[in-house]
C-alpha cells in the first residue's frame, strides 16, 4: 500500500467521472440487491417483510453515511431521530388525522429541528466523547419513549397507524408496500448522490480526510458537520415514519439503542463512506439475520463473530472488496 505503482498513468477524462464513481463490483452488488427485491415480490411470504425492513434500514443508512461515512463523525444516537419520525407520524396521523405523507414530512421537520439544536452543542465533541454523547442521546430518547406513556403508550406500543398513501390512494398490500419503499429508497439514494457530488459533499468528505486541511481551504467545519448531522436525522426520521406506515405498529424497542448498533453494523458491512455501501449493507445484513434466525443464541454469536471478522478482514466493507481484488490483481 505504501509503495503505489503509478508507472502507467491513465489519461485524464473528466467525462468518465460518473462511471468511475461505481466500480463494476459495486454495480453487481446493487444489481443483486434489486434482484433480492424482485425475488421477494415474486415469492412473497416472510421474505417480503425482510425486504421491507431492509429498504427502511437502507434509507436510514444512506443518511447515516452522510454523517459517518462522508464526514467521518461517529453517531450512535441516530435512532433518536427515527424515534421522532415514527412516533411523530403515528401521533399526527392517529390523533390529528393528518395525511400520512404529510405527517412524514411534518415529523421530518421536527426531527431536523431537534437535530439542529442538539447537534449544535454536541458536535463540538470529538472521538469517543462524541460517540458516547450521541449514544446517550439515543438511550435518553428510548427511555422517554417508554416513560412518557400519555403520548407514546409506553411499552405497549402504538397501534392503528395507517399505511402510507396520498388522498384516497393507500398502499395496503405487502407487495405494494415493498415496491413503494424500494422506489422511495431509490429516490433517497438519488438525492444523496446529488448532495455528495457537489461543493457541499466535497466539503464534507474533505472534513473526514483532514479537518485542518478543510478549514485551511475555508470550509466551515462546525457548520458542515451540523448540516451533515441534520441531513442524517432527516433520513432517519423518514425511515422511522416509513417503519410506522409499513407495519402499522411501533414500540420503543423498534427505535431502541439496538437499532443504532444494527444500522452501524449495516453501514460497516456495506462499506462506510462508499456510495452503495448503505444499501448493500442493509440488504445483506437483513438477509443474513434471517438465515441464522431460529438457531437461537447461536444467531447472535454468529452475528458478533461475523461483525468482528468484517471489521478485521474487510474494514471498508463489502463494496470495497472489488477494489481489493483489483489491487491484488495489479500487484500480481
Amino acid at each position: 500500500m505504501t509503495s503505489p505503482n503509478i508507472t502507467s498513468p491513465k489519461p485524464a477524462a473528466p467525462a468518465a467521472k460518473f462511471a468511475s464513481r461505481f466500480d463494476r463490483f459495486q454495480v453487481v452488488l446493487l444489481g443483486l440487491s434489486a434482484l433480492a427485491v424482485c425475488f421477494a415480490l415474486i415469492y412473497g411470504g416472510y421474505l417480503l417483510t425482510v425486504m421491507q425492513m431492509a429498504m427502511i434500514y437502507a434509507i436510514f443508512c444512506v443518511g447515516l453515511n452522510f454523517f459517518m461515512g462522508y464526514t467521518g463523525q461517529a453517531s450512535f444516537g441516530q435512532n433518536s431521530f427515527a424515534c421522532i419520525g415514527g412516533y411523530g407520524s403515528a401521533i399526527l396521523c392517529v390523533q390529528y388525522g393528518w395525511e400520512p405523507a404529510l405527517a412524514l414530512i411534518g415529523a421530518m421537520v421536527v426531527a431536523g429541528f431537534f437535530a439542529l439544536i442538539i447537534g449544535y452543542p454536541t458536535l463540538r465533541l470529538r472521538g469517543h466523547y462524541l460517540a458516547m454523547a450521541t449514544f446517550s442521546l439515543g438511550l435518553i430518547t428510548y427511555d422517554i419513549s417508554i416513560q412518557w406513556t400519555s403520548v407514546t403508550q409506553g411499552y405497549m406500543g402504538y397501534a392503528g397507524i395507517p399505511s402510507l398513501g396520498i388522498g384516497n390512494w393507500t398502499v395496503e398490500s405487502e407487495r405494494g408496500k415493498l415496491v413503494v419503499l424500494a422506489v422511495l429508497l431509490a429516490f433517497a439514494f438519488w438525492l444523496s448522490l446529488r448532495m455528495r457530488d457537489s461543493r457541499f459533499g466535497r466539503g464534507l468528505r474533505a472534513i473526514s480526510g483532514s479537518e485542518n486541511g478543510a478549514a485551511a481551504l475555508g470550509v466551515r467545519v462546525p457548520r458542515f458537520k451540523l448540516i451533515a448531522f441534520v441531513v442524517a436525522a432527516l433520513y432517519a426520521s423518514a425511515a422511522g415514519s416509513l417503519y410506522a406506515y409499513t407495519f402499522n405498529f411501533i414500540s420503543p424497542e423498534a427505535f431502541g439503542p439496538a437499532m443504532s448498533i444494527l444500522t452501524f453494523t449495516m453501514l460497516f458491512v456495506g462499506g462506510v463512506g462508499t456510495i452503495v455501501g448503505p444499501i448493500i449493507g442493509a440488504v445483506v445484513t437483513s438477509l443474513l439475520q434471517e438465515v441464522v434466525r431460529g438457531s437461537g443464541h447461536y444467531q447472535d454469536i454468529a452475528y458478533a463473530v461475523g461483525l468482528l471478522a468484517t471489521l478485521i478482514y474487510a474494514p471498508k466493507g463489502l463494496s470495497a472488496l472489488g477494489g481489493l481484488f483489483r489491487r491484488k490483481k495489479e500487484e500480481a
Partner: peptide
Amino acid sequence: FNGMSVAENVEVGCHLATKGGVAAS
C-alpha cells in the same frame, strides 16, 4: 483528503471561490 481522488482534492480547494449549499446541490 484521503478517500478522494487527486482531482477531487483540488476541487475542494475551489470551495472559497464558489458558492452553493445543500439546496443548490
